[in-house]
Design a protein around this nucleic acid. Structure first.
Lengths: 341, 341
DNA sequence: ATGAAAGCGCTAACAC
DNA sequence: GTGTTAGCGCTTTCAT
């Protein structure tokens, strides 16, 4: 009942453990390393007979590589997270790397316990994160999504969100007077410190009063907050949501209240996720284009080359107006209204 | 630049590696194991100074436990998967177990490479799975979601779906004549072999012709298939979707085509996920009640007690009519129409 | 109260 | 071509 080891296989095949290791590593064909075809066959046979599975922990301790990529995703139900997972899954398939998701967990607590070759962290904005990351980067390759950090032993994925966020706010303030922001209470956390500010600045520029609806947690709470917001006596005619998932929740809330999107309510999200793109009505969003594929590439590069110099990767953002905005607008970059296939 | 080991810490603190191990394992207070308070302090100090992090792989190889729980989720974007992740996350938090998600991957290929104490597999229906699982269960504790397998070295989570699926079909056939099923092409895979059959049997009972819309893959394709289905000259007035995510896609498709749910189209899904419950209109679904919490409990129990006898856990299902069905129906069990909070 | 030492399963020099 | 052997970092008897 004990799990068979390389030793058992060696005994069964009548060879040494080294030979087994070689054969199972597939170095039987190369010209330099010579294992006879017959020995190789016997080893494979023995391994199969015993139901041998390599012990990943032992291999890791020896080689120093786990072939694991960890994705720390703060809110798995955020379509942003799903997009990351999908893109990474597609990118690593060829490389012998297995992506594992650490979901809805504070990486600050959970990471130290893990061993992955490369770790993606989707949320690093709290005080002290810079130090902690520098510290962690001594034992793992880190790729961090952050608007504020600089590379320091780890890579940083940055969204050059500012200008596009401003543009989106100007779009809204030109068309509406009551514009609410739907945001997480801890706008410090998550991917969004700059987003709330963009709203505030935009409203200030237009001389309009702020209308803040804050929720705590996931899309269910965002939905509840949106319902509350839209049920007020003088509801907003536009919502700037701090994230696509919040925007989607707002649209569902509007539909529930029999409000028409975009006629009664314009909604713009942030993140440009696939989910927003394919929903009905499709969601206007400000976000990077081609982001997820590129992010996945960066992660794979880092996995394959742990010692390459660390860098910051910037993504230009765009405003993408779709069905949740009333009209085609000439004044925005890339104004082509996207069509669903 | 090398990652510090227990050895370095021992040297720095002027003690042996054994002492460091003891201290860091927290066995300093117990009466039996005596480490002086002073030594303990020095060790902690040294560890902190060096930025020591235990090597998880080394610990695993020595103890045989990784404190990892792996969730193999065939389609992460399926709300079913999100519900699993959420429930498990809540259940393990206290136990020192870290749940990791293996997403959108064939466990048949990926599992052998991993080392987790307990592995949840959400999809085991293919030929040969029974043998492979029995095999794998020699090295890992397995919990398998399956309608067909029997426990054999692993636990089985079973949904007693049949009667409720039949009930749901009878509900539909009593009210509609053109009822379509929205299903994955490979209805062999995934969690659904019995679901398609329930549709077929139900239609046969009612003497109605089958109307099958099959898609390949994820919710985007389900959406496309639903649009196509509803655009036909003689569209169905009800859709029985093989999974909640497909049902949600169908509702979105209907909304896009300006059809009213439930007036023009009744939709019933399978799985009873939270996402379906909170959407607008809320989704009628047939599924287990309290399933996810219970599943999480089973996983935790298994993680804590690897040698307990293996068992099958059955979940009774119910038909839950919500807004995507036109009317309150007396003839169904638990007919209380649920209200969103 | 602390340390020495034996491995866990595996890989990679280096011998033969 | 194949075997010997020395560890990787850690935990855990068993001495002292």
């Amino acid at each position: 009942m004990m799990r068979p080891t390389i030793k058992n296989v060696a005994a069964e095949a009548g060879v040494s453990t080294a030979t087994v290791s070689y054969v199972l590593a597939g170095r039987t064909k190369g010209k330099g390393s010579g294992i006879s075809i017959e020995t190789s066959r016997r080893v494979h046979e023995a391994a199969h007979k015993l139901g041998y599975r390599p012990n990943q922990a032992a291999r890791t301790i020896r080689t120093g590589r786990s072939n694991l990529m960890m994705l720390s995703l703060t809110m798995l139900s955020d379509p942003w997270s799903l997009s990351v997972s999908k893109a990474v899954g597609a990118a690593v398939s060829a490389e012998g790397i297995t992506p594992m998701i650490l979901a809805d967990t504070d990486w600050r607590k959970a990471i130290p316990r893990q061993g992955a070759d490369v770790i993606f962290i989707d949320d690093a904005a709290q005080a002290g994160d810079a130090e902690l990351l520098a510290e962690l980067s001594r034992s793992n390759s880190l790729v961090v999504f952050s608007e504020t950090l600089e590379p320091n032993g780890f890579d940083v994925i940055r969204s050059m969100a500012g200008p596009s966020l401003d543009l989106a706010m100007d779009h809204l303030t030109a068309r509406h007077r009551r514009i609410a922001v739907l945001t997480t209470k801890s706008s410090l956390g998550a991917k969004s410190p700059a987003r709330l500010e963009a709203y505030r600045d935009g409203m200030k520029r237009a001389g309009l009063p702020e209308l803040v609806a804050a929720f705590d947690g996931d899309e269910l709470n965002a939905y509840a907050a949106a319902v509350e917001l839209l049920s007020r006596p003088d509801p907003p005619t536009a919502i700037f949501a701090i994230s696509d998932y919040a925007a989607i929740a707002a649209i569902h809330a509007a539909q529930r209240l029999r409000l028409s999107v975009p006629d009664d309510l314009e909604v713009i999200g942030v993140g440009n996720t696939t989910q927003g793109e394919v929903m009905t009505p499709s969601l206007s969003s400000v976000g990077p284009v081609g982001f997820f594929t590129r992010l996945a590439d960066v992660l794979v590069e880092r996995a394959l080359n742990p010692h390459a110099p660390h860098r910051a990767v910037d993504f230009p953002w765009q405003v993408l107006l779709r069905d949740s905005s009333p009209e085609f607008s000439q004044d925005l970059q890339d104004p082509k209204r996207e069509v669903k296939k």
